[in-house]
Amino acid sequence: MIDGFLALYIFMLAAFTGYEIIARVPVILHTPLMSGSNFVHGIVLVGAMIALGQAQTPFEMAIGFVGVLLGAGNAAGGYVVTERMLEMFKSSKPQAGKGSK
């Protein structure tokens, strides 16, 4: 259990962190970054696992199962897609890539 105000502080600081990380990103990386952040919220898988782990009736278990399925898809799919996109940036000749601004 997390204290309400502590959660609020976490929320505030994490929000600023997210904002700052993106603030100076070049256009060239917008799509991979959107995909990367899409992967990061795949952490919902952990929550779905906990929900299924605590589910008691078959109905709850069924919904929890679907939740884990979807969460796992989010995490795995997000990773593969992002990795594939970023891999191609590596293949450009080294140091040529100061990128567009």
């Binding site: 959660a7 976490i10 600023f16 919902v44």
Partner: peptide, 23 residues
């Protein structure tokens, strides 16, 4: 994440929420 008391979910979710809004 808040409901489940899971800090990793709160932080990751919020970071993406803010970054995604800016994006």
């Amino acid at each position: 994440g808040f409901v489940l008391g899971n800090e990793a979910m709160i932080i990751a979710g919020t970071v993406v929420g803010a970054a995604g809004t800016l994006l």
